[in-house]
């Protein structure tokens, strides 16, 4: 199991830095003009593929419902962006802002707790000798191989029996368990928390908890941020779990809320769904762009989808 994941997170970090210098400098060897043009052409073509839907989303969010059908999809027509945004935020007594807030709440709280729980477990596996350690780690990584969606219906039944369904907890509790956090916690603890430092702290009389919180977490902070970011994203993006667990619309995260509008069949409300989608994407795009160096470090350590 362990071997499926590239085992050299720390090494990658160094390589990455080295590489960045190379990006900016002139390449070491001369490349033929044709090869350069072909390469850039292919890269640009791929970029167009990735950007077209986003461009369409931006353009469309500025259009009224009628214009959506009557104008060129890739260029601006009437400018109804303000109307659309107002419509998104005032519909159903302003439920949309509540949905955004819920998403922040679920992803934020879930992300923080999942990070702490997972990294603490990974730290223990890296820094303490105990029987069953390998089995424990293997079991947790086994969790990565399980399609989580399959657990959702039984989880729903369990939660309904203990009265957790249709509550904040129904969405947060399952998100707290992130096997990837354990994996990354273990890798980072092994690489960046020296045993000597722990021993020294013990000699100074510090307790294990205190060592973890004052030394361990501090040295592992890049791991914490990475794990937090990716857990945040996976909770923010989750759809199946809240779809099954939540009935009360005021508890919906923004993904489920927008899906609800998308399937609302009493009216043609494309403009609202489209503009709402754009708004819901902005926070994550901003977060990703501004925190680039963190998630890239995480990716190189072998992160996982969902």
């Amino acid at each position: 199991m362990t071997a499926t994941l590239p085992p050299k997170a720390a090494v990658d970090e160094g390589a990455r830095r080295q590489r960045r210098r190379r990006d900016d400098a002139e390449p070491e060897l001369t490349v033929s003009r044709g090869a350069a043009i072909a390469t850039l052409g292919a890269l640009t073509l791929a970029a167009v593929y990735f950007l077209i839907p986003i461009w369409w989303l931006i353009v469309s969010s500025t259009k009224s419902n009628t214009a959506l059908f009557n104008s060129n999809g890739f260029w601006f027509s009437d400018l109804s962006l303000i109307d659309n945004v107002v419509d998104v935020f005032t519909r159903q007594n302003g439920l949309f802002s509540r949905w955004l807030l819920n998403s922040v709440l679920y992803a934020g709280v879930g992300g923080i707790l999942a990070t702490l729980l997972g990294v603490a477990c990974g730290y223990a596996i890296a820094k303490y000798e105990f029987r069953g350690r390998g089995l424990l780690f293997g079991t947790i990584l086994g969790g990565l191989l399980l399609p989580a969606a399959l657990l959702t219906v039984p989880l729903y039944l369990m939660f309904s029996q203990i009265g957790l369904v249709n509550s904040v907890w129904a969405v947060i509790i399952p998100a707290l368990v992130n096997p990837f956090a354990v994996y990354l916690g273990r890798v980072y603890a092994a690489a960046s928390v020296p045993d000597e430092l722990i021993e020294a702290a013990r000699l100074d009389g510090a307790g294990e908890l205190r060592i973890f919180f004052t030394i361990g977490l501090r040295l592992m902070s890049p791991a914490l941020v990475t794990v937090f970011l990716f857990t945040f994203v996976s909770i923010w993006n989750n759809f199946f779990l809240p779809l099954i667990m939540l009935t009360d619309q005021s508890l919906y995260p923004v993904t489920l809320g927008l899906y609800n509008w998308y399937t609302a069949t009493r009216e043609a409300n494309y403009n609202v769904v489209i503009t709402g989608s754009l708004i819901s994407v902005i926070p994550l795009v901003v977060a990703f762009l501004s925190l680039q160096r963190f998630w890239r470090a995480g990716l190189s350590a072998g992160s996982v989808k969902s």
Binding site: A46, A47, F50, L51, P53, I54, W56, L57, S60, V233, W236, N237, F239, T255, L256, L258, Y259, Y262, Y270, V273, I274, S277, S280, V281, L284, V285, A287, F288, L289, Q292
Partner: peptide, 21 residues
């Protein structure tokens, strides 16, 4: 960064977006 951008779009929103396309 450009290639990575779609990852910031939640799966269900991406599906809705493409459904319109």
């Amino acid at each position: 960064v450009l290639y990575f951008l779609p990852y910031a779009v939640p799966g269900v929103i991406a599906a809705v977006l493409w459904a319109y396309l």
